[in-house]
């Protein structure tokens, strides 16, 4: 077309220069020729406008944030561990794991272990362990179960709640026994004519409980004596302790 040659450029040349024009890498003389053709040519002009507009639209797109666990998931699905840094125990500590385990053992386990090895403590510790295991099996928890515990978060949550439910049930049963016991004592008190003062009565009752160490008695007598004994224990752990002491 005469007009195109008049501007010193033909459509194929315009097409070839399009990318450089968009990237703004043409010399000023070339740019002027290119723009002149774009203004005059009815087919090339809109193409340049569209391509440039498209580029600007694309440039307006912002980067999105990957999900927070993506890196961990990738590492878990490739190496099988969620972080090599974590697995190596962090960079600042260069002590090997075995060394750190031994230190930990020396500080926390060995002193207690030495005490346990003394004959006078050995029996007591043995009995505590025995009563603890009796307590656990009474609450329905067996050593066999421990081996089958699943460590998936949902399973751990389930195990936690079911164990909690068992302990609460066990505690409620014990509570009932003591409740009945204290009611029986109240009835006894009513039908016995020469009734000592409540504090003394409490003391007597405790003294009657043979096999209880002195500590336990002191603890009971220091409590509010009008309270029905043990029926309102604050937590299952105290009940467990009482049970242990009785067995010892």
């Amino acid at each position: 077309m005469p007009e195109e040659t008049k501007h010193g450029m033909q459509c194929p040349e315009f097409d070839a220069m399009l990318m450089d024009a968009i990237d703004r890498v043409l010399s000023s003389a070339q740019q002027a020729r290119f723009e002149a053709h774009a203004r005059m040519c009815p087919s090339c002009g809109p193409i340049f406008a569209e391509v440039d507009a498209g580029r600007l639209w694309l440039k307006s797109i912002e980067e999105v944030e990957p999900p927070v666990h993506l890196v961990q998931n990738i590492l878990a699905s490739t190496t099988g561990i969620s972080s090599a840094r974590l697995a190596l125990g962090g960079e600042p500590s260069q002590t090997p794991l075995s060394e750190r385990m031994r230190e930990w053992f020396d500080v926390w386990i060995r002193p207690g272990f030495t005490a346990v090895r003394q004959p006078r403590f050995a029996l007591s510790f043995g009995m505590i362990f025995f009563s603890f295991s009796v307590g656990l099996s009474a609450s329905g928890l067996k050593a066999k179960d421990l081996a089958q515990i699943s460590l998936r978060p949902s399973a751990v949550k389930h195990t936690y709640y079911s164990t909690q439910a068992k302990v609460v049930k066990y505690y409620e049963n014990i509570r009932l026994v003591y409740e009945v016991e204290s009611r029986v004592n109240q009835v006894k008190r009513v039908i016995t004519p020469a009734e000592p003062a409540p504090a003394e009565k409490q003391q007597n009752r405790n003294n009657d409980t043979s096999g209880k160490p002195e500590q336990r008695q002191e603890r009971n007598s220091s409590r509010d004596v009008n309270q029905p004994v043990l029926a309102s224990l604050p937590s299952p752990s105290v009940t467990m302790a009482t049970l242990s002491w009785r067995l010892v």
């Binding site: 980067e63 999105v64 990957p66 590492l75």
Partner: peptide, 22 residues
């Protein structure tokens, strides 16, 4: 070297994620 692999994942995951997303 697992630490080197983690470094590669750290360097490229954002770029790859964005490419996949778009």
């Amino acid at each position: 070297d697992a630490a080197a692999w983690e470094e590669i994942v750290q360097r490229y995951h954002r770029r790859i994620y964005n490419m996949c997303y778009r």
